[in-house]
Write a protein that binds this DNA or RNA. Structure first.
Length: 555
RNA sequence: GCGCCCGUAGCUCAGCCCGGAUUAGAGCGGCAGGGUCCUAACCUGUAGGUCGUAGGUUCAAAUCCUAUCGGGCGCACCA
C-alpha cells in the first residue's frame, strides 16, 4: 500500500522515493486517514506554505486504489480502498505463508553473530539469558531478510577464574559431585574461592600453568569444560535455541602469540608496568591490555585473535557481538586496535549491547558472590504456573501437560525480555516473568490459539466471496497485517527485537477486539472473515517465530 | 574525577534514532461493567502524567543542543 503512495508522490514531487517512504506515517487517529504524508519538507524545498502544497497535491492524484485523498492542514491523508486493501493483503499472506514478512535485502551477505557465551563452570543465569534471547531473535530477523547467519556460542572457557577453580577443586572438590551436578558443584567451589583472598595468587599461577600446557591443569580444565558444555546443551535444547558453532576463548590459545607478534610488527605494542599494552589514550579509550606482567594473556588478546580468525574463515559482512553494555569500553578498544592493525573490516564489527538485569536493590547480579538466579529455576517456576492455568480448563496427560506448559513458560520468558528496549536495564522480578495477562507472551499465544480454534471449528468449505462493506475493526486489523514487512525491516535496521514484540502485541489486541465484536462462523461474511482469521494467525505465528517463540494450537 | 546508559501514570515499560495533526500510549494494580454466543490467559468503560529540573534551538520539543540533579555500569593485569 505504501508503495502505491510512494509511486504517486514521486511522480509529482522532487523528493526521492526512499525519502518519501520514510516520511509516510500513520495518522494518530484513524478518522484522519490510513496513511499520511506530511508536507513540511516539501515546504522547505518549494518555499511554500505546506498547507497549500497539500491542497495542490491532493488535486493531482487520481487512483481508484484510494477511497479519497484529503488535504488536512499540512498533511495529505490517504484513505485506502478497503476492498482493494483486503484482497491484496490477504492473498499475499495466503500465498507467502511462513515467508510473509521476509525479503531478499540481505541476499548474498553474511552475518556472524556471537551470542549467549556463558562461562563454563558457572551457572547459566539471567545475565546470559538476555544475550541468548536477543541474539537469537536478531539472528532470526536477519535470516528472514535473506542474510546468511552464523551463530557462534563463544564460551568463556579460558582465563584466570579457571585457575582459581582448579585450586578450589583440589582443596574442596569431590569427584562424584562433579560428575553428578557439575556446574553447581564447580560454582560452589568458585564462590568459596572468591571469598578467600589467599587463594588468588595460587589461582593465577594455575592459570599460567594451564596456558603452558601443564598436564594436571589441562586434564582438570578439559573435564570442567566437557561437563559444563553437556549441561549447557541440555538447557539450549529446552530453550529451543541452536548454534552453528560452539567455540570458546580457549580455541585461540595457540593463536595469541601470533597476534602479539603482529601487534609488535605493526608497532602498536608498548611496555607498561611490566605488561604489554596498546595505548589508545589519544582516542579517549585508555589502554588496551594485551599481556599481563606475569606473561598470561587477557580477553582482549583472545578477542582480537578470534575476530581475525573469523574474518579469515567467514569473510563476514557484519560481525555482531551480542554482549552486555558493561563491556562497551572493551569492544570499543579492541575494534580500535583492529582498525590500527589495518583491518578495514574492523568497522563491520558491531557491539549490540543490552542493559543488565539488576536485583531488587537495583544492583548488578554478581556471580562471584553467589548472587545469581538459575535459569532452570526460572523455567520451572513459570512452568508450574502454566500447568495450573491449563488444568483449570482441560485434562491432559502428564506428558502433554508438561510440553504445553513448557512452551507457554518459554513464551512468557522470551517475550518478557524482548518486549523491552534492549539497552535499558531491567529490575529482575520473577513475578513479571510468570505473569500471563496483558502484554505478555502467553497473551499472544492465547490469541493465536483462539484464531486456530475458529479455523478448526468452521465446517463450511471456504467459498469465493465478493467483498461488500468491511467493518472498521476488520480494516484496522488488515492495515496492521499489511505493515508487517516494514516492521521486520525496521527491527533489523535498529537491531531491536522489541519492535516485533510490540507489533505482535498490538496485532493480538486488534484481533481480540475483532473477535469480540464480530462473529465469524455463521455470519454472512464467514468466508472472508475466515480468511482474515487465517491471515492473522499466520502473521502472529511469523512474528513470534522471529522472537524465537513457538506457537501452540490449543491453550 | 572521566566516559557510557537510563530517568515518561502508584508499579513495570513503549514512544526518542528520523521534532509536527490543540486528546503523550500500553500492561499491571484501583474503581465500574460484560458468560444460553467461535477458548473470560479475553473484552468494555473510568480515574491516574507540569514526559527528572532549568535554559536554548525551532513556526512546532517527551523527541535535538547545553547545564544540572538522581540511578545504573565501566575506567590496566577479571571476563
Amino acid at each position: 500500500m505504501k508503495e502505491l503512495i510512494v509511486n504517486q508522490l514521486s511522480k509529482i514531487t522532487s523528493i526521492s522515493k526512499s525519502e518519501i517512504e520514510r516520511l509516510i506515517e500513520v495518522p494518530p487517529n484513524p478518522e484522519l486517514g490510513d496513511y499520511a504524508f506530511p508536507c513540511f519538507s516539501l515546504a522547505k524545498i518549494l518555499k511554500k506554505n505546506p498547507v497549500e502544497i497539500a491542497k495542490d497535491i491532493s488535486k493531482k492524484i487520481v487512483s481508484d486504489k484510494f477511497e479519497k485523498i484529503e488535504a488536512k492542514g499540512p498533511y495529505l491523508n490517504f484513505f485506502v480502498n478497503r476492498n482493494f486493501l483486503a484482497l491484496e493483503t490477504l492473498s499475499k499472506i495466503k500465498k507467502e505463508k511462513n515467508k510473509y514478512g521476509s525479503s531478499k535485502t540481505g541476499k548474498g551477505k553474511k552475518i556472524v553473530i556471537e551470542m549467549s557465551s556463558p562461562n563454563i563452570a558457572k551457572p547459566f543465569g539471567i545475565g546470559h539469558l538476555r544475550s541468548t534471547i536477543i541474539g537469537n531473535s536478531i539472528a532470526n530477523i536477519s535470516s528472514s531478510l535473506g542474510f546468511k547467519v552464523i551463530k557462534i556460542n563463544y564460551l568463556g572457557d579460558w582465563g584466570t577464574p579457571f585457575g582459581k577453580i582448579m585450586v578450589g577443586y583440589k582443596r574442596f572438590g569431590n569427584y562424584n559431585k562433579l560428575r553428578k551436578d557439575s556446574i553447581k558443584h564447580l560454582y560452589e567451589i568458585y564462590v568459596k574461592v572468591s571469598k578467600d583472598k589467599s587463594m588468588e595468587e595460587e589461582g593465577r599461577q594455575w592459570f599460567k600453568k594451564l596456558e603452558e600446557g601443564d598436564k594436571e591443569a589441562v586434564h582438570l580444565w578439559k573435564q570442567f569444560r566437557e561437563l559444563s558444555v553437556k549441561e549447557f546443551k541440555k538447557l539450549y535444547k529446552i530453550l529451543n535455541i541452536n548454534f552453528d558453532v560452539y567455540s570458546g576463548e580457549s580455541e585461540y590459545k595457540n593463536k595469541m602469540s601470533a597476534t602479539i607478534e603482529e601487534l609488535k610488527e605493526k608497532n602498536l605494542l608498548k611496555e607498561s608496568e611490566g605488561a604489554l599494552v596498546v595505548n589508545l589514550e589519544e582516542y579517549g579509550l585508555g589502554v588496551c591490555l594485551i599481556k599481563k606482567s606475569d606473561g598470561a594473556t587477557l580477553y582482549a588478546t583472545r578477542d582480537i585473535s578470534a575476530a581475525i580468525d573469523r574474518y579469515k574463515r567467514y569473510k563476514f559482512d557484519k560481525l555482531i557481538y551480542e554482549v552486555g553494555q558493561e563491556q562497551k569500553l572493551h569492544f570499543k578498544q579492541f575494534f580500535k586496535v583492529l582498525e590500527l592493525m589495518g583491518y578495514g573490516w574492523g568497522k563491520n564489527c558491531i557491539h549490540v549491547d543490552h542493559g543488565l538485569y539488576l536485583d531488587k536493590d537495583g544492583k548488578k547480579f554478581a556471580t562471584r558472590h553467589g548472587k545469581t538466579i538459575f535459569m532452570e529455576d526460572i523455567i520451572n517456576e513459570t512452568k508450574e504456573l502454566a500447568k495450573k492455568e491449563i488444568q483449570k480448563r482441560e485434562k491432559l496427560s502428564a506428558k502433554e501437560l508438561d510440553s504445553r506448559a513448557l512452551k507457554i513458560a518459554l513464551a512468557a520468558i522470551f517475550y518478557g525480555d524482548l518486549k523491552n528496549h534492549r539497552s535499558s536495564d531491567m529490575i529482575f522480578d520473577i513475578d513479571r516473568f510468570v505473569a500471563f495477562e496483558g502484554n505478555t507472551g502467553p497473551y499472544i499465544l492465547y490469541t493465536y490459539a483462539r484464531a486456530k480454534s475458529i479455523l478448526r471449528k468452521a465446517k463450511n468449505q471456504p467459498k469465493k466471496y465478493t467483498l461488500s462493506n468491511i467493518e472498521d475493526k476488520e480494516k484496522s486489523l488488515i492495515l496492521k497485517l499489511e505493515s508487517f514487512q516494514a516492521v521486520v525491516q525496521q527491527a533489523y535496521e535498529s537491531l531491536s527485537p522489541n519492535i516485533i514484540a510490540n507489533y505482535s502485541y498490538t496485532l493480538a489486541q486488534l484481533f481480540n477486539e475483532f473477535y469480540h465484536s464480530l462473529p465469524v462462523i455463521g455470519s454472512d461474511q464467514e468466508s472472508f472473515r475466515l480468511d482474515l482469521v487465517d491471515a492473522t494467525s499466520q502473521v502472529l505465528k511469523n512474528s513470534l517465530a522471529l522472537l524465537g517463540i513457538e506457537t501452540i494450537e490449543k491453550m
